[in-house]
Design a protein around this nucleic acid. Structure first.
Length: 135
DNA sequence: GTTCTAACA
DNA sequence: TGTTAGAA
């Protein structure tokens, strides 16, 4: 049995995952509804999570702390290519950013946790929802 | 005892 | 998101 297989084995119930991630069962179930995770089901319809699921939940938790909404997190998970090597040029003091530029900027801030001159992190929440719809 | 779904003084 | 009710 290889590592990948082992990591995807559905092993623990929500109770264990709850402690492993410091998330509430409510949140875990909520994230599943929004398709951020896809735990397996067994017995009488009870969820069984794998190590991968747990890691994903930890990642989701950190993104939530950064102020992202479900839509934003979905985008991050799908485009899991964390560090952009650096082919992106940041607009100095640009009052008007194109959607493309703003998107790249936000992705950088989110993955690097840093701010760029003239762009406040607090704008992430609002601008992100402008990209990946509102809720 | 634990987890599930659905719903909200 | 918290929390609770009722069932499995």
């Amino acid at each position: 049995m290889d590592d990948a297989t082992r990591r995807n084995l559905a092993l623990f119930p929500i109770g264990i995952v709850q402690r492993l991630t410091d998330l509430t069962a409510r949140q875990i179930r909520y994230y599943e509804q929004n398709e951020l995770i896809h735990p397996e089901r067994t017995d009488g319809n009870q969820r069984l999570f794998s190590f991968n699921d747990v890691e994903r939940l930890l990642e989701i938790k950190s993104l939530i702390d950064k102020g992202l909404n479900i839509a934003g997190i979905k985008a991050m998970i799908h485009k899991n290519e964390p560090g952009h090597t650096g082919a992106i040029q940041r607009p100095e003091v640009t009052p008007e950013l194109t959607d493309s530029q703003l998107h790249e900027l936000l992705m950088r801030e989110i993955s690097e946790g840093q701010d760029y001159p003239g762009v406040r992190t607090s704008m992430i929440q609002g601008e992100l929802s402008r990209f990946f719809h509102k809720s």
